[in-house]
Design a protein around this nucleic acid. Structure first.
Length: 467
RNA sequence: GGCGACAUAGCCAAGUGGUAAGGCACGAGUCUGCAAAACUCUGAUUCGUCGGUUCAAAUCCGACUGUCGCCUCCA
């Protein structure tokens, strides 16, 4: 039985899809706002999304999964004040918003691909769904949940008694002290923009019933999910930071239009901390996957690292911890290959019980740390057998760590690609070693190291690799 | 100021009533001329502190201390 935690009810519930008959799971993920580089904290959320996908598939479900790409309307403040993030980034970089969107979308796709994250069935840009958003807004106005001001169309939060149910916080009290300029045209301080009347200088704008406008941030997710998944779907995922405003507003929009909570499960990924604190530009600790690569950490080692903690707990990133993840991953790959093509007999019951143990872990609200304990139990099994290798490969359908691969391919240096002086040193060292002149041998090893090469002695002679 | 979360070995961390998973590091050993790598073995009588409930608590309740987050951009 698959159990998932639902933020709205604050409970782990058994997961049963709406379309049980066809075994289809419909889910929605809040995707990136493509105005800047995605960092490793962002990536934690998408790794989780992917693990959830793969656990569902592991359980035999088919997926209809939508992720949006926000390329318009996400303001620099959630109070819908300030500048559009996309346009701000374009202005700062002196490029067009479309160039910005295209470039950061491309980089995002490269990042998720390097992490073995599957692309959802539908990836939808906000700007490709403008008509759907406009009619959504019209619908809300018709139902009396929205009103017009000189700045745009706003959602009337006072019309929805359950507003604030997701964050369970007294939003009124929280906001009263917030440093947000009061818009006197708004009926309630919490009312949020659905459709914004475009100032002249705003680049991305569309003709509509209310003149040239552009959409508010929250409406895109409601419109896109409704279009592709229907009024009510199974799972909605995102980061915990979306709970208080973005997802609260999505629920409000859907309840206004359809009268229903749009998702049966709301799942939220906790934050990644850096050295026990927040990731922030001012501290200079916002890392991207490329920053990790520069330090010899491959993207999949970062994926492994996220498995050391449960997705609903904060995870503390330290260089010591990420390095340990890289070492662990390397050893796991070696342990897996040690089982490959070995013929030792393994009782069927043992394989089945390990298989079940792994399934229980992932089906318990995607408990990856518990699942990894099972993975290691199999990997370290002394009785080497292809049965265990196959089991590990099966687990990797969820893990997506490519544990069935050959190590260090990139590090190996082809002999004839070496420069003459390196070859000469190697030859001298070979002779010294034949003569048991180890002090010369060690000196030559040091000099190779200075030139950026590691030489390792084995039964077959000297192996050289780039540092 | 208001709200919320968390506190388990050097590090990253599972475990939410029945007697402390897993990984890394450290240490010891095997191997090696040495080193590196690999492999084997090893670590908490105890889960921030103090009380309480219970036959039984890391797990429930209370207080305290500490850390972090949100309320402002964020996955």
């Amino acid at each position: 039985m698959l159990k998932l935690y639902d933020t709205l009810t604050r409970k782990k519930k058994e997961f049963i899809p709406i379309d049980k008959k066809n075994n289809i799971v419909r889910m929605y993920t809040c995707g990136p706002t493509v105005y800047n580089f995605a960092h490793i904290g962002n990536m934690r959320a998408y790794i989780f999304m992917d693990n959830l996908r793969k656990v569902l598939k592991y359980n035999g479900y088919k997926l209809e999964h939508v992720m949006n790409i926000t390329d318009v309307g996400h303001m620099t403040s959630d109070a819908d004040e300030g500048e559009d993030k996309m346009e701000k980034s374009a202005r700062l970089q002196n490029r067009s918003v479309y160039e910005i969107a295209q470039e950061y979308t491309k980089l995002f796709m490269e990042d998720i691909s390097s992490l073995n994250i599957q692309i959802p069935e539908y990836v939808q840009k906000a700007t490709d769904n403008i008509p759907e958003m406009e009619s959504y807004v019209k619908g809300l106005v018709d139902k009396g949940f929205a009103y017009e001001t000189s700045k745009g169309i706003y959602y009337d939060t006072s019309k929805l008694s359950s507003y604030g149910e997701l964050s369970k916080a007294n939003l009124e009290e929280q906001r009263s002290g917030a440093r947000v300029e009061v818009d006197i045209e708004k009926k309630n301080p919490l009312d949020f923009a659905l459709w914004i009347k475009s100032p002249k200088e705003h680049i991305m704008k569309w003709d509509s019933k209310w003149g040239e406008c552009y959409p508010g941030w929250h409406i895109e997710c409601s419109a896109i999910s409704k279009k592709f998944l229907g009024d009510v779907f199974d799972i909605h995922t995102g980061g915990v930071d979306h709970i208080p405003i973005h997802h609260e507003n999505e629920i409000a929009q859907a309840k206004g239009l359809t009268g229903k909570n749009p998702a049966n499960f709301w799942m939220h990924v906790e934050f990644l901390l850096i050295n026990s604190g927040k990731m922030s530009k001012s501290l200079g600790n916002v890392y991207t996957l490329k920053d990790l690569t520069k330090k010899g950490i491959e993207p999949l080692a970062y994926r492994y690292f996220t498995y050391t903690s449960h997705y609903r707990n904060k995870l503390n990133f330290t260089w010591e911890a990420i390095n340990s993840a890289q070492i662990s991953l390397n050893r796991l790959i070696d342990a897996c290959s040690a089982h490959k093509n070995e013929k030792n007999n393994v009782p069927k019951e043992i394989v089945e019980s390990l298989d079940k143990k792994f399934l229980n872990a992932i089906n318990d609200d995607i408990n990856m740390p518990a699942a990894m304990a099972v993975v290691w139990e199999v990997a370290k099994e002394k009785n080497k057998s292809n049965d265990y290798y196959n089991l590990l490969k099966k687990f990797d359908k969820v893990l997506s760590l490519n544990i069935d691969r050959v190590q260090d391919v990139n590090k190996k240096v082809v002999e004839n690609e070496l420069s003459e002086d390196i070859k000469e040193i190697l030859e001298m060292r070979k002779i010294a070693r034949q003569n048991k002149d180890f002090s010369t041998s060690d000196k030559l090893r040091d000099s190779l190291k200075e030139k950026g090469y590691n030489v390792v002695d084995s039964k077959n002679g000297q192996n050289i690799e780039k540092v």
